[in-house]
Amino acid sequence: MKRAVILAALLAAAPLLADSNMPAAAYANVQLEDPAQEAKAETLMESLRCLQCQGQSIADSDAQIAGDLRNQVRLRIKAGEEPEAIRAWLIDKYGDYVSYAPRVTGLTWPLFAAPLALIALAALLLRRRFTRSAA
């Protein structure tokens, strides 16, 4: 709820830290020349969490550290690295927090079991609702 207040929020939630007046890194706000590579980078950036502004992906954030991370992602993609390798590199540094795509681990398996469990539960409860014959 509170969509209303939310946006005011957004405006108000801008980082209080002063920012560097240094220009943004080379690939922070510049796309890769190869559209296929850029598309790969874009998809990855949308699923990496901004470390400073926390509620946003790095693709949607004005924070400088998000810009620097976009720069890293694009440079690595340009150098031929696979998106999942870049994700793994960041998880190695920051833990699972940095990725919006949860991995299947001992901690997160319920997230992935849930859809199956929900269907099984529904089937179990509904089994007797239907009549077989057209009575």
Partner: peptide
């Protein structure tokens, strides 16, 4: 470090 590279290398998220 003009591109925060050391931060990503060390797992640091701010200054």
């Amino acid at each position: 470090d003009d591109v925060s590279a050391i931060q990503f290398a060390l797992g640091s998220s701010g200054v």
